[in-house]
Structure formats: structure tokens, C-alpha cells
Design a protein around this nucleic acid. Structure first.
Lengths: 224, 224
DNA sequence: ACCTGAACACCGTTCAAGT
DNA sequence: ACCTGAACACCGTTCAAGT
């Protein structure tokens, strides 16, 4: 609960190789590979060849560490957008960029849910101004609509990532990760093949969301 | 992995009070109160006054039990919609109904992410036909758009629920649960009050999503 | 058929002790 | 200042044994 001892300082006499930075990167790597559920302090310690308790000198606990991981991932959000595109298309690119940034580190999606979906920073400023450019002049309105956009995209990523690690969704063999078999649900036994599984292409689904959302923004803009 | 022994049968000689149904309801109750993370097989067993291993006769494991919980919750989705409303407003109601059903059992949101966001059943059929009525005549298109709707709403609920159990989002005192303080994020220390917290009304945010989404659907419909 | 005792291999975290 | 040994109170799950 309280803040961890700050400033490891220069005189790291014992083990100079074990710093907050080293721990966080190793944690991120482990989480991306094994998933958040598969991650543990003890495994991380083993990976770093230290005792589990050593981590507790640098971090207050697992939550503290997870938070640092989220910040690490978040610190390199960068969405490049082709300036020659129309405003609507730039918003589409923004949404796609947000999604692919989130999928870059799957673990950060799960963690990020618990550690704030922040609407701050230059990426957000850019997003808000894009919405303004579309015709939603009032800044308050633009911010609200941008927040809606962020929540929609982040929520979608959560669903998507959940689907991937799901029990019932099995990847279509031979395809990239973005196709999922949806079972009909509702009392269907896991090994019942009588009901056909529905194949959903998650990319197509996301594009649908993007299209609907942008069209909705345009409508909101033209209403004043 | 394999199927649990089915059919407890009538001759439940030992303890007739311990059935799958009883276990699942108790699990749901416990999860709703303590959250999915706070739930454990051992706690559930304690609550039911049996040994933890007793549960393993009725269920294959924790996952199997969680799945049953999700099905229990899902089995009573019911969204009532005023027939006198316009099609657009009925879609709005549908989205709101979906959201409030999901918030009824917070645990099911988290679990449901891992155990299929199903697009099946009469609720979905109704939703798809609503989209058709709006003017998206092609059934394939309507289904795709409805799926986008479900993912959007479910994703939003996930975000919303995550925000509630979050470390950085603290409820605004004296208000209902639907207001959250959003910290600016990015290197701000948890106890740093120099940067003002942003207050986001989650209900307002959801209404924004609904408005944008429905307007987008209308645009898609009018495009043919 | 239905349940328990005992046990295994894990967790996160703390605390006194080492250097 | 930085780390370890030992320990506490938890997990999910299995397996042999009871009735």
C-alpha cells in the first residue's frame, strides 16, 4: 500500500544487475510468453537467479510490479498517421493503431484493465483534435467522444484477447490468430459437434466496429 | 479435460444436499460478493461445509465450475423492450439491456470473457432482426453488425467493471458506482495530488457510445 | 455412488538475519 | 543498502481409502 523505497542509488553494492528496470522488462517478457495467469513472482525470481524475496526490495508487491509493467508498455505508444488521409480515415487509422498497440503486448491489455485506461498524453491530444476536425467543435464534446472511442477499442481488444485464451474458442487451424471459432453456447457440451461452430473473423469484426463508429461520429458532427 | 461424471442420479445416498445446482449457485453468490479473484474452491467448500475434494466429484475442476456459473447467469438473459419505440430507440434499449444484464453479475463479465461471448439464443435473434428493421437488409450484414454491437457493449462492460476494481480509479464518494476518478496516468505517483483527477461519468460515456453506434448503424443502413 | 484424509506442488508475502 | 533462509497462510488438484 505504501510507496516502495525509492532511488536504488548508485551504490548498489550487492547486485548491480538487479534493478527495477531489469525486473520490469523480465516480467513483461515472461507475461507476454506465459500470460498474466501463468506469471508468478517466484518464476520471475527464478528467471533472474535471485530469491523471490529480492524482488520485494525493489517493488512493494506484485501489484506494484504489474503497474510498472503497464507503464513500460504504455510509455511507447506511438501511432503514425498518414497526413494525406481524410479526417475520417485518420480516425480509422487512429483506432487501428490503438488496437495494434494493445495487441503488441497482450498482457498489458489484461493488466491495463485494472490499472487505468488512461486518456492522457500526446496520443490522446491528437485523437481529440481529430474529432474536433471532424466537426465536433465543442472541446468537451470532443473529449467525451474520444473517451468513447478509447473505451470501445480497448474493450474490443479485451474481448479479442479473452477469446484467444478462451476455452471455447478454438483457433481455426492454418489461419492467423485472428479467426476464432465461436461455439453456439447455452448448454452445448464442449465436445458436441452436432451444432456447427461459427467462424468469426476478428479483423472483419473490428473493421465493422470502426466503420460504424466513424459514421456515428460524422452523424454527431453534422447534427451540430 | 475429460467430461465429469454425469447424472448424479436419484440415489444420492451420502449427501443429497450437495448437487451441481447447489454448488453453482453458491459459487455465483461467493463470486459476486468477493470477486472472481477472491474466489477459491476451498472457500466454496468451507461455505458448503464439505471438504474441497467433494467438489471434484461434481465438477472436473475450477474451470468446469466457472463455466457452469457463466451458463447459469447467461440462462436468464431477458431484455424487455417497449414495442412502441422507434427501431433506433429499440436498439438503444437493447444495448442498455445488455449492459445492465452484464452488470447484474459482475463476476460473469470476467468469466464470460474466457468462456465465450456467445451470439446465440433468442436475445440475439431479436437483436439481429432489429438491425434488419433499421434497413440493413442482408442477413449476413445484419449479423455482422449485431456481433459488433455485442462486442462493443460487452467490451464496455469489461472496461467498466475493471475500472471499478482498479487500483487507480477511485469512486467519487457519495455518488453511485457509476462515477470513476481517472488519474492522468503516465508516471503519476499514486498519492500525487498535484495533477487533478478527471471525473468520468460512466453512464454518460455509455450513452455516448450508444448514440454514436446507433447513428453509425443508421448511416450503414442508408448506404444500402 | 459419494465423500474424506493426507499429500503434492504450487502461490504471495513477511520477517529476522546476513553482508 | 541489498539480499537470503525460513516460515506463514494460502492455493488447485490427485489419489487412496472409507462407507
Amino acid at each position: 500500500m505504501a510507496g516502495a523505497r525509492r532511488k536504488p542509488a548508485v551504490d548498489a553494492t550487492r547486485n548491480p544487475s538487479l534493478t527495477r528496470g531489469v525486473i520490469v522488462s523480465a516480467a513483461l517478457e515472461l507475461m507476454d510468453r506465459q500470460g498474466v495467469d501463468g506469471f508468478s513472482m517466484r518464476k520471475l525470481a527464478g528467471r533472474l537467479d535471485v530469491s523471490p524475496q529480492a524482488l520485494y526490495w525493489h517493488f512493494n508487491g506484485k501489484d506494484d510490479l504489474c503497474e510498472a509493467v503497464v507503464e513500460l508498455v504504455r510509455s511507447d505508444v506511438r501511432i503514425e498517421i498518414d497526413e494525406s488521409l481524410s479526417v475520417a480515415d485518420r480516425i480509422r487509422s487512429h483506432m487501428r493503431g490503438l488496437r495494434s498497440h494493445l495487441s503488441r503486448h497482450p498482457c498489458a491489455i489484461e493488466l491495463g484493465r485494472r490499472f487505468l485506461p488512461s486518456t492522457a498524453g500526446e496520443v490522446s491530444d491528437l485523437g481529440v483534435s481529430l474529432i474536433c476536425d471532424l466537426g465536433i467543435a465543442d472541446r468537451e464534446d470532443a473529449l467525451r467522444h474520444y473517451r468513447a472511442l478509447v473505451w470501445t477499442v480497448t474493450g474490443f481488444s479485451l474481448m479479442e484477447h479473452g477469446a484467444e485464451t478462451s476455452v471455447h474458442h478454438t483457433r481455426v487451424p492454418g489461419t492467423p490468430i485472428y479467426e476464432v471459432r465461436l461455439r453456439p453456447g447455452l448448454g452445448v457440451k464442449p465436445d458436441d459437434d452436432s451444432q456447427p461452430a461459427t467462424v468469426v473473423n476478428v479483423d472483419v469484426l473490428f473493421e465493422t466496429v470502426v466503420d460504424v463508429f466513424v459514421a456515428g461520429l460524422q452523424a454527431a458532427a453534422s447534427r451540430g
